[in-house]
Amino acid sequence: MKIVIINYGAGNIQSIKFAIQRLGYEAVLSHDEVAIRNADKVIFPGVGEASSAMEMLKASGLDKVIPTLKQPVLGICLGMQLMCNSCEEGDTQGLGIFDCDVIKFDNSEKVPQIGWNQIENLKSDLFKGINDKEYMYLVHSFYVPLNDEAIATTEYGIKYASALQKDNFYGVQFHPEKSSKAGAQILQNFLEL
């Protein structure tokens, strides 16, 4: 199986590569369009600030490529946020794969949310074998409100969409690569889609 982790300069991609390695697979880091199109599975990572990550994505030309991919694509954290219509952070226009907007947590809770929180209302093969209310590791200040494409929800002051799916595109706000055994199971499920 060919697994490509999109390498566009934003994110802790080494951790995702290692997490996949622990599952017995090898992933390639690449920003090459051909390699990405030929992959069986594509992972779109991202941490940091939305507008600068989007700038880097545009500079690599991959903003035009990602929305046209046909194989399973998994956006993680900021990667998922960039797949939405827009992000409030840095007034960023997203890739428009998911029909929703990313907005900032109000200050009723501490921001960023950092730590382990539960995912529930799980609705996808991505969560095969995962218990309702399983704990995942999250680090973020912006979130996707509940919507029709939500396949998991989490509560932090308000209930929000912590995972999304549309056709072959999947997005998770949490970090499966850092979420212990349950996180590893989700990555494995994605690779076996």
Partner: peptide, 8 residues
């Protein structure tokens, strides 16, 4: 009730 984020 306020949130389910756990203490680390």
């Amino acid at each position: 009730l306020r949130n389910m984020l756990t203490k680390r």
